[in-house]
Computed example of a mutant assay.
Amino acid sequence: MPVKSPDMKDNVPPLIVMTDLDGTLLDHDTYSFAPAVPVMERLRATGIPLILNTSKTAAELASLRTTLQNTDPYVVENGSAIYLPAEQKGQTAHKTGDQVHILGARRSEILSFIQKIRVEEKFQFTGFADMEVSEVIAYTGLSESDSELAMTREFSEPLIWQDSAHQLRKFEALIANHGLRLLKGGRFVHVIGACDKGKCLHWLRERFTDSYGAQPAFVALGDSQNDVAMLNAADIAVIVRSSHHEPPDLEKQSSVIITEETGPQGWANALTQILDETLI
């Protein structure tokens, strides 16, 4: 049974699943998603949308979504933009053919400002705009082709911070005054617009509610600090345990699951439990 577009009037799906990728659906070190395949097949069979919500770019997701057989809406660059199937209303995303709803800032604006204050304040950091492909490969472990896709950013700039914690706080305050945010991810600190993964969940919840005439329940899965807004906004939050850092703290107190297993195995176990309890 194919997953339905959120613009199609039909029965409300029992759940909508929104997930982070690196360290959650994808293994932190190998990027494998093998343990999650049976659960993704189960979601497709029951008509439950699987919305990818990631720090990755739209270019990176193009081939990955094909591999995952994913045709649902998706969110890129830490909540900066929501991409929808091309036949839906929105602003055309020229690189993907999909439609995009932009919540964040353009990368050109971000780069202009952070390069200006780097000179003025003598901040020490290296961003993707400063790197060669070989450096991105070294920092991420991605292949050459995947690293090139990761560098095609439109709404954010990942940084390797090479200065003190005091300077980082100063940097964060300066960009906040300019309407930008600093988000700490698993490998990088990301400079983005006034957006986050949670705002995208709220936006999509309203869209699905308008389309179906009722509000579906969202399950969100993530492993790190940049997933907190998404996890807090969900009806059921799944913190996927990481072998690289402690689970993030949530304001949300109820309907929170912390997995025992890490990465895609923890992802699969938690969703299996939720689906078993929901689809009865």
Rank of each mutant, 00 (worst) to 15 (best):
R205W: 06
V228C: 11
D235T: 03
H244D: 12
A229G: 08
L201P: 07
D223L: 01
S243N: 08
A214D: 14
L204M: 14
D223A: 08
T209R: 12
R241H: 10
S224P: 07
S242N: 08
L221S: 00
P216S: 09
D227V: 03
Q225M: 12
Y212T: 13
A234G: 05
A229W: 01
D227P: 00
L221A: 04
V240S: 10
A217K: 11
P216M: 10
V228I: 11
V238I: 05
A237W: 00
N226A: 08
A229M: 07
A220H: 05
I236H: 01
N226P: 08
L201C: 07
A214Y: 03
L201F: 08
L221F: 06
E206Y: 05
V240Q: 11
Q225G: 13
S224L: 01
A233V: 00
D235I: 04
V219M: 09
V238R: 05
I239R: 06
I236C: 10
A214G: 15
A233L: 03
L204P: 04
A234L: 05
W203D: 15
R207D: 15
N226L: 03
L201A: 02
S242F: 07
D223I: 01
P216T: 01
C200M: 01
S243Y: 04
S243G: 10
Y212Q: 15
A229C: 11
D223S: 10
R205E: 14
D227R: 09
A229Y: 01
N232I: 03
A237T: 01
G213C: 12
A234I: 02
G213E: 13
H244I: 12
V240N: 11
C200S: 13
S211V: 08
Y212G: 15
I236G: 00
